[in-house]
Design a protein around this nucleic acid. Structure first.
Length: 490
RNA sequence: CGGGAUGUAGCGCAGCCCGGUAGCGCGCUUCGUUCGGGACGAAGAGGCCGCAAGUUCGAAUCUUGUCAUCCCGACCA
């Protein structure tokens, strides 16, 4: 069996690729930059979707669906928005193919040229705001709180499975409000939802923050984000929530009559998380043996592997395991009974470990005789033998414990690799070795860009729940009122 | 788009300099022995050597062209 995974130490990025491949999460497709999400990977995404969708609905949002194609002219309506996306758009120019008149194969029918090109959405603000114009006339029509689950296309030069692909799946919330305050509160609320989701479900601790003007979303007035630290000390932007001001309302002429009977532009937000979260999940917890999943997003929480030699043993052991499965399912657990007779136990152990199943049960003739079962946890790779009578209780406690300890482990790691730095040498050192540099910043884009040029580190965010503190920017020497986070990022 | 490289079995690669019936590892199939941490042995199946033209009695190998992909830069959720 040559199923070795490259170690993190050896080559972190090959380790990541190995995990994605060997845990059968996704693979590259025949289309450059686009991935095939395989059933096991998609199942994890479905769990994330389901949890997020519930949270959106609990905060008053509803789902809708807008077109994949956006007329080119829509894009030019919001100036900074076009600029931000123009360089990475897929464009539809024709609508028909024909037999090649000069040889074999098929060619684009030159007669079938579209009058106006269509852009495959890189994000949906424009088409949605064009639609909202018709929906909004009065303050009574507000707020509109819509979300859509969709795929989008951004023609990236260099792609990596889940982290950056030309096509990706995501959700995008687009809300319309009567006042600035309400829209701002919405943007902040959704950032909170994302942070809760990342921490409670994915067990990934995040820093809530604001993006600098330079890193802000194209068309936004303020961009809020959650930033996570991966095991190589690099930052991963896990979600963003934008306060769009009246930019899109003005661009698409969306006005409403307020209570004073005055025409006013609508206030907007948009917010999204994507399949990139899968990348965060993988990189935050996994080890050199494969994927490690937090129970709350694991498609399989418990896998049962039977062990036997003879036919007699096989029957007894399979019956024994089937009963355990039933009992666990009765408790609402997601259980896989791996009764394949085509693979051996050792192979199965390795395979489920690779796929990150949190808890594994193994039972053989010895256990049938003694009324016991071997229980192994994926996060610590430890195992023990327990009495099958106390199995349910034990496993439920264990799953909880795994969820918590994964979060704590990730949090400890982030703390250990976040450093307050006050001098330029310290700054370079931290950023170079992988980690968050918690440093003063003079607030200028000029300094931010110069630091990026010098170290490849970007300003990840200005942390939200942070006290102000006077200091000096280690790069420019100018005064600063607060610390921000610089790091290399994905 | 600048710099570098690679296209040979499902995957990973050797063969190419020095032309002569296409090879290895993994995976796959069958049989036997195994089965409490990725089993072992034996026998099999699987190829337009990226594509096209040229040189030659003969091309995976030499020449020219072409297409595609990957890596390093610039750009990015």
């Amino acid at each position: 069996m040559a199923k070795e995974i490259t170690t993190r130490q050896e080559d972190y990025s090959r380790w990541y690729t190995d995990i994605v491949n060997k845990a059968e999460l996704a693979e590259n497709s025949a289309v450059r930059g686009c991935m095939v999400i395989k059933p096991y990977g998609y199942a994890i995404w479905e769990f994330m979707q389901e949890a997020l969708d519930k949270m959106f609905k609990a905060t008053g949002h509803v789902n809708a669906y807008f077109p994949l194609f956006i007329p080119k002219s829509f894009f030019s309506k919001e100036a900074s928005h076009v600029e931000g996306f123009a360089k990475e758009c897929a464009v539809v120019t024709h609508y028909r193919l024909m037999k090649n008149p000069e040889g074999p194969g098929i060619v684009v029918d030159p007669e079938a040229k579209l009058e106006e090109e269509l852009i495959v959405r890189p994000t949906s603000e424009t088409i949605i705001w064009d639609t909202y114009r018709n929906w909004i006339k009065s303050y009574r029509d507000l707020p509109i709180l819509c979300n859509q689950w969709a795929n989008v296309v951004r023609w990236e030069m260099r792609t990596r499975l889940f982290l950056r692909t030309a096509e990706f799946l995501w959700q995008e919330g687009h809300t319309a409000h009567a006042t600035r305050e309400e829209a701002m509160a919405e943007a902040e609320k959704m950032l909170g939802v994302y942070a809760d989701f990342a921490e409670k479900y994915m067990a990934v601790p995040v820093i809530r923050g604001i993006k600098s003007a330079n890193e802000r979303f194209a068309g936004a007035v303020e961009t809020f984000c959650i930033e996570a630290m991966m095991q190589d000390g690099k930052a991963l932007q896990a979600g963003t929530s934008h306060f769009l001001g009246q930019n899109f309302a003005k661009a698409f002429d969306v006005k409403f009559l307020n209570k004073e009977n005055k025409l006013e532009y609508v206030w907007a937000t948009s917010w999204g998380v994507s399949t990139r979260l899968m990348g965060a999940l993988i990189m935050a917890h996994s080890d050199d043996n494969g994927l490690v999943l937090p129970p709350k997003v694991a498609p399989i929480e418990v896998v049962i592997v039977p062990i036997y030699k003879t036919d007699d043993q096989q029957q007894n052991v399979l019956d024994y395991c089937a009963k355990m499965k039933e009992r666990l399912e009765a408790k609402g657990l997601r259980v896989k009974f791996d009764d394949r007779d085509t693979q051996k136990p050792g192979f199965k152990f390795a395979e489920w470990e690779m796929k990150g199943v949190p808890v594994r049960l193994a039972a053989g003739p010895r256990d049938v005789e003694n009324g016991t079962v071997e229980i192994a946890r994926r996060d610590t790779l430890t195992k023990q033998v327990i009495s099958e009578q106390e199995m349910e209780e034990h496993i439920i406690g264990l799953l909880d414990d795994i969820q918590n300890s994964l979060y704590n482990r990730a949090l400890e790691y982030r703390k250990a690799n976040t450093h307050r730095v006050d001098t330029w040498d310290e700054f370079k050192n931290v950023v170079e070795n992988g980690g968050f540099a918690y440093a003063h910043w003079d607030g200028t884009t000029e300094t931010e860009l110069a630091i990026k040029e010098a170290t490849k580190a970007t300003l990840r965010c200005i942390p939200l729940d942070d006290d102000l503190e006077d200091g000096t920017d280690p790069f420019s020497g100018k005064p600063s009122k607060r610390r921000v986070i610089f790091a290399k990022a994905y």
